[in-house]
Amino acid sequence: MPVIEVRDVTKQFMKGSETITPLRDANLEIERGEFVSLMGASGTGKSTLLNLIASIDRPTSGTIVVNGTDITRLSRSKLANWRAANIGYVFQTHNLVPVLTAYENIELPLLLLPLNRAERRKRVEIALGAVDLLDRANHYPRQLSGGQEQRVGIARAIVADPTVVVADEPTGDLDETTSSQILDLLQRLNRELGTTFLMVTHDPDAAAIAGRRLRLEQGRLVEVADHVPVPAALEVR
């Protein structure tokens, strides 16, 4: 049974007097433990789909079932609780809370779960170890490099052992070497933790680490064949 089922999802929004439809009758199924990358030109709706699956946005029509729950039917407050237990989000710009240390940033999702301090500490230390940042636990984001910040962001996304980790251009803000390290990390975590990963990227090399690659074209999802290179023109912003 797929862990993510997107059925006939359409998303529209108004931009001035114009109606924009970034997603039109999109359908997608992702199996548990899969690593899926999603590509597409700017404005094709990659992030929109990601946000819909992450339940921070709602579709205009269609249903999205994640881990057996139709998230389009949940109220806002129930969605927040559901998100805390099921979704890990990796942002392009890390989005760490500047007044909290690396440890405290990673601990944030655990505060929403029924865990005591000792259990939280154990989980945070495991997550810090997984991203190889145990020695930076008490550093504030301003004391970390871009790559380290993103690793903290990844640790925060996986610490609550979510059903799905969504990553929106996780290497978009990093240099080539650091990007490579982060992609390796994501791949390793997917392999070792068995967590489902859905990554939005416009970088074909980044997308290549995924077990399955999808492309959004004119609001519809298209499977990318293993050996067919993605046309560069489509991917350049």
């Binding site: 806002r76 407050s77 805390a84 989005n95 809370v97 944030l108």
Partner: peptide, 15 residues
């Protein structure tokens, strides 16, 4: 604003 939106993305409610 972005930071507060991030906290909501993690699962903290608006309230």
């Amino acid at each position: 604003i972005r930071e507060l939106a991030t906290l909501q993305t993690i699962g903290f409610s608006r309230r």
